[in-house]
């Protein structure tokens, strides 16, 4: 007899695959989207420090890259903290889907 679905679950809800949380794309929750403008960025890394989801990509040389939209939930902390250059923010929030 084939097993029922609930009989196939790992005992005690143990997750047997390491690092599987990477598969959980929390970016799907986002309603506001941060937009990065490189020419206004002074590479202060405030956004990288403040991001609660490690959704700011950084190169091996320590240079800021664009957002990782798979995990960015759109909280807007980066946009708030961004000092920008000469009064112009490097990160602004936009409505998702626009």
């Amino acid at each position: 007899m084939s097993k029922k679905f609930w009989e196939t679950l790992p005992q005690g809800s143990v997750v047997l695959e390491a690092g599987s949380s990477a598969k959980f794309k929390t970016g799907a929750w986002r309603s506001m989207r941060p937009k990065w403008t490189e020419e206004n960025c002074i590479q202060c890394m405030f956004c990288w420090i403040y991001c609660p989801d490690m959704a700011v990509k950084v190169t091996a040389e320590g240079k800021r890259e664009n957002f990782d939209y798979d995990y960015c939930k759109g909280c807007g902390i980066c946009a708030l903290e961004c000092p920008g250059k000469k009064g112009k923010k490097a990160i602004v929030m936009e409505e998702e889907g626009k």
Partner: peptide
């Protein structure tokens, strides 16, 4: 069974299980 100290096979205890699977775990 599924010991955490089996370091060659890393695993997690106590995950968040929401509406998709909690009911099934209780059934089990």
């Amino acid at each position: 069974v599924h010991p955490l100290l089996d370091l060659d096979n890393p695993k997690s205890y106590g995950p968040l299980i929401l509406t998709d699977l909690y009911h099934e775990y209780k059934r089990a």
